[in-house]
């Protein structure tokens, strides 16, 4: 067990034992360990590395250390810059979980139900991966390659997550069978990017990998009159929602059926687009 206090230490420990398990908040890892479904030999703990817990804003870009917790992301300072990420963070587990669980951990776990993933996908977030050998950058949509599978190499860790600060309203909605502290059955992030004149949409829990609904994005972006602020009619919203639902690739499991998940993202798409349009048109 290595309790790293610097990135260099952590990377050195990982280089020495490339199959080490990385622990940050431990909220996913310990569930697996306690269940006996994961046997841990070597552990490298990242929670005492100061630079991982930092975030800062440079121009229009936010850079989160991978160890920033969901409790911190819920704070107003961050919520003002990436409101959808803060909304997603608020739906993660309980307050105790949010105090420990980290943004980097949520990405590394790569669960299709990871609450931050749709927002990060919609933001085109870029991950900085570090090893003793190199630092490389990978978009989050490429980083996650399957259910709980990533392209993280032995010896590598997630150092930071970079996202743009967009001009425009944002929404994150999540369906679960409980009003709080629930694993997502379906979720959706919808962001307005005024400068690029784009609507960005990504879905959660309806696909093994992060899913951008690009056809729906094109449709909505194309039907918005970005200069006048005059909004498209309900048929455009409905078509948008259908395209979103069509892009989903859900499964049946004990948390929900594929049909319900597809239905749910359609409803979320319709509602969240309506919400942002109401705000886009208001001054």
């Amino acid at each position: 067990m290595t309790i790293a206090t610097s990135l260099e230490d952590a990377c050195a420990a990982l280089a020495a034992e490339p199959n080490s398990v990385i622990v940050a908040g431990g909220t996913d890892l310990m569930v697996e360990v306690n269940r006996g479904s994961r046997c841990v030999e070597n552990v490298v703990a990242l929670d005492r590395i100061p630079e991982l817990a930092d975030w800062h804003l440079t121009g229009d870009e936010l850079r989160f250390g991978a160890g920033v917790t969901f409790a911190e992301i819920c704070e107003p300072e961050i919520a003002a810059l990436v409101p959808a990420l803060a909304q997603a963070a608020r739906t993660v587990g309980s307050p105790q979980i949010r105090n420990a669980a980290t943004l980097g951990g949520n990405i590394a776990t790569a669960s299709p139900a990871g609450d931050s993933i749709p927002v990060l996908a919609a933001l085109d977030a870029v991950l900085e991966l570090r090893s003793t050998e190199a630092i490389r950058e990978v978009p989050v949509t490429e980083f996650i390659t399957g259910v709980k599978a990533t392209c993280l190499m032995p010896g590598e860790l997630i150092e930071a997550v970079r996202v743009p600060v967009l001009d425009g309203p944002q929404e994150f909605c999540k369906v679960g069978t409980r009003n709080a502290m629930v694993i997502s059955v379906a979720s959706l992030a919808l962001l307005v990017d005024r400068s690029a004149r784009r609507i960005r949409v990504a879905l959660g829990s309806v696909s093994p990998i992060p899913l951008r609904a690009s056809e729906a994005e094109d449709h909505a972006s194309g039907h918005l009159d970005w200069d006048s602020g005059v909004q498209p009619g309900p048929e455009v919203v409905r078509e948008f929602a259908e395209l979103v639902a069509g892009s989903a690739n859900p499964i049946d499991d004990h948390r929900g059926s594929a049909a319900y998940r597809r239905h749910a993202v359609r409803v979320l798409a319709e509602r969240s687009l309506t919400r942002v349009l109401n705000r886009v048109s208001s001054p």
Binding site: Q87, R90, T91, E171, F172, C173, K174, V175, G176, R178, N179, A180, M181, V182, S184, S187, V267, L268, R271, R275
Partner: peptide, 16 residues
């Protein structure tokens, strides 16, 4: 929205 169905997931507006 926390007090509406869906709770923290912010899925509903009062009209739904």
């Amino acid at each position: 929205p926390l007090e509406l169905p869906g709770g923290a997931g912010r899925t509903a507006d009062p009209e739904h």
